[in-house]
Design a binder for these strands. Structure first.
Length: 637
DNA sequence: TTAGGGTTAG
């Protein structure tokens, strides 16, 4: 008996010597029989292994759990992502008058952060101050993380309702006299963040800046900061698109003699990707290799994404291939890299390879590959994916629904697109825009405009993409006044700087309506990006309205940056022909035939059944070539 | 004891 007791005492004093959960269970069984006084120690060992069911069962057998037992179970709940239960336990503990300590607050604050319990988190902060633990580095870091997360949603309230202004008695009474069930998601955050007016609020970068200042204040009031403190702030800046500030923090980190770790690198990579700074990205990659982070999953996925964003797909793929154990995120990063760079077939090949490697598609991988179905107009594949999505209950996701709406619209089935849109429990700006664009591309301009106005009435503030959609609708339907009104509202009311796409839509709209000089003037007023995409529709309009003089001016403008544009010469030649200037048309055609040799011919294709039929200019190799030509002759009379 | 990845609309 004595020797068993000695062994158990030794193991309990050095729990790190216990190597498996079965050993814990053996010790537990022995202690439960002989030494119930050690039950609390066994509980802490169960929680060390994050073994939740055993921890809870054991905890429930304790007649009056100690602070040690309470904090073990609170931590265990939090570590297993049972955040609500963790907070309930914390409230119960406070309710019976047990004082929390520096071990328990980080777990509780983590639970508040994940649940987005904004006001409850503030009360916990007040309690931290009441117990004099605000200078504990772990608690401080947990607070920093909590406010950094909250700031993305409603951190102005952090500034206005700082718990530092509460008295100790106030904070204590909050945690003593409330019911955790009253702390459902506070209205500004969490699931309800789809609330449009709220979205509008935090889409403003200026406010985001102000919010991060409050997080920075928490950082500065900490008596000391470690790597976690810096990383938390850097992540906060990065997630708030305050990239310069994030980079500044890395420099400050160096001044504080702290070395960037894997967390730091994975926070910086999205910034480098955003700025398409491949040189800096390579530098980070090298630093990662030198410091042993080469296999870190967060870094490898960040690098894959960064290289893809910098249009260095080969580097992305090389890195991806070098990974010995690819998880679903590795696959998804590479698939998304292909799809976002227009390599839709390659995206599909990888998707199939992922399935062969027994990696099941997740919600995210599904939403990455659906746009490939949309662009390749492969409806059967898209429908198969939709079936999979329904079977796996991914269809509640806004990402999934928006991509499905877009896919069905692009594949020609606007009714199914509307069906998915109407079936959504809630909409966001992206899903509204997908549906508006669907209507616009199908020529249902009035439906698109109606939906755009409905979206505004619902309180959503349209962004530049939503305006592209509604302007496309106006352009396709020739709704000149409506289009110009939307364009002006975008600039004056919503303060959105027009981009290439907006100019292209309006120029096209004016051109189709015969207001050729207005269209020319608008394009000339563009500050940059006067590329072929914006001139060609005007040139097409010149042909329709037989305006040779303006067509020549347009081609002259285009020759300043794209002298070999075949489309421009075809349209100019056709414009000459339309007014009977056949000699000029022939001259342009001669020039064209010389340029054609330098150009890769365009290709179009159609899917019939399971087969894709592709056609290239001048290619007569298709087996049904004669039938196709006969059919075309019938169609064109 | 505290911090992190891939996704949707042009």
């Amino acid at each position: 008996m004595e020797s068993i007791q000695t062994t158990i005492m030794t193991l309990l004093k050095i729990p790190s010597q216990i190597k498996s959960i079965s050993q814990v269970k053996q010790i537990h069984a022995q202690i439960a029989k002989s030494f119930p006084i050690f039950t609390s120690d066994i509980l802490s060992i169960y929680t060390k292994f994050n073994f939740l069911p055993e921890s809870i069962t054991l905890f429930n057998t304790l007649p009056s759990p100690s602070i040690h037992a309470w904090k073990s179970v609170i931590k265990c709940y939090s570590s297993n992502a049972y955040f609500f239960e963790s907070l309930k336990c914390f409230v119960k503990m406070r309710g019976i008058g047990i004082h929390p300590d520096h071990n328990v607050f980080p777990s509780v604050l983590k639970a508040c952060t994940h649940l987005m319990y904004f006001k409850f988190g503030e009360s916990v902060h007040a309690s931290v101050i009441r117990f004099g633990l605000e200078f504990d580095i772990f608690t401080g870091n947990a607070l920093l993380s909590m406010y950094s997360t909250f700031q993305r949603f409603s951190a102005l309230q952090v500034l206005d309702e700082s718990p530092e202004r509460m008295t100790a008695d106030q904070s204590d009474s909050i945690l003593h006299h409330h019911n955790i069930n009253n702390y459902k998601l506070c209205p500004e955050v969490g699931q309800n963040c789809q609330n449009p007016s709220f979205l509008n609020q935090f889409s403003n970068r200026g406010l985001g800046n102000l919010r991060m200042q409050s997080v920075r204040k928490v950082f500065e009031t900490m008596p000391e900061q470690d790597v976690v403190s810096y990383n938390t702030l850097i992540m906060g800046y990065a997630q708030n698109t305050m990239y310069n500030e994030a980079m500044m923090m890395i420099r400050e980190m160096g001044n504080a003699k702290l070395k960037p770790d894997a967390y730091t690198l994975s926070s910086v990579l999205p910034i480098v990707a955003k700025y398409m700074d491949a040189w800096k990205g390579k530098e980070i990659h090298g630093y990662g290799i030198r410091h042993g982070f080469e296999r870190n999953r967060f870094i490898t996925s960040g690098l894959t994404d960064m290289y893809a964003n910098c249009k260095m797909l080969e580097d992305s793929y090389h890195l991806f291939c070098s990974l010995p154990d690819k998880d679903c995120v590795s696959w998804c990063s590479m698939i998304a890299a292909c799809v976002q760079n227009g390599l839709f077939d390659e995206g599909f090949i990888l998707f199939r390879q992922m399935l062969s490697a027994n990696i099941k598609p997740t919600l995210v991988s599904c939403s990455s590959i659906i746009p490939a179905c949309a662009h390749l107009t492969t409806l059967p594949l898209g429908q198969q994916l939709h079936g999979y999505i329904i079977r796996h209950h991914f269809d509640d996701s806004l990402f999934i629904s928006s991509s499905l709406v877009s896919m069905y619209a692009k594949c020609g089935n606007i009714k199914l697109a509307k069906c998915v849109f109407d079936g959504m429990k809630q909409h966001d700006l992206v899903s509204w825009t997908a549906m508006i664009m669907g209507y616009a591309s199908h020529g249902y301009a009035h439906d698109a405009i109606f939906l755009f106005k409905e979206m505004e009435m619902e309180g959503f503030m349209p962004n530049s993409v939503a305006f592209v959609a509604v302007l496309t609708a106006c352009s396709h339907a020739g709704l000149v006044n409506e289009g110009l009104t939307f364009f002006n509202r975008m600039v004056r009311h919503y303060d959105i700087t027009p981009e290439f796409e907006h100019y292209a839509c309006v120029a096209d709209l004016l051109g189709r309506a015969g207001k050729l000089e207005d269209a020319f003037g608008l394009i000339c007023s563009m500050p940059e990006n006067k590329t072929a995409g914006v001139w060609l529709p005007l040139l097409a309009a010149c042909r329709v309205h037989k305006n040779v003089e303006l067509a020549e001016k347009v081609v002259l403008e285009m020759s300043k940056f794209d002298g070999d544009n075949v489309g421009a010469y075809v349209l100019l030649s056709n414009t000459y022909s339309s007014v009977g200037k056949y000699k000029d048309a022939a001259t342009v055609r001669q020039m064209l035939s010389k340029k054609m040799n330098k150009k890769e011919p365009a290709c179009s294709w159609i899917r019939i059944g399971e087969k894709v039929h592709a056609f290239v200019t001048g290619d007569e190799s298709h087996s049904s070539y004669d039938c196709i030509i006969n059919a075309l002759n019938i169609l064109f009379g």
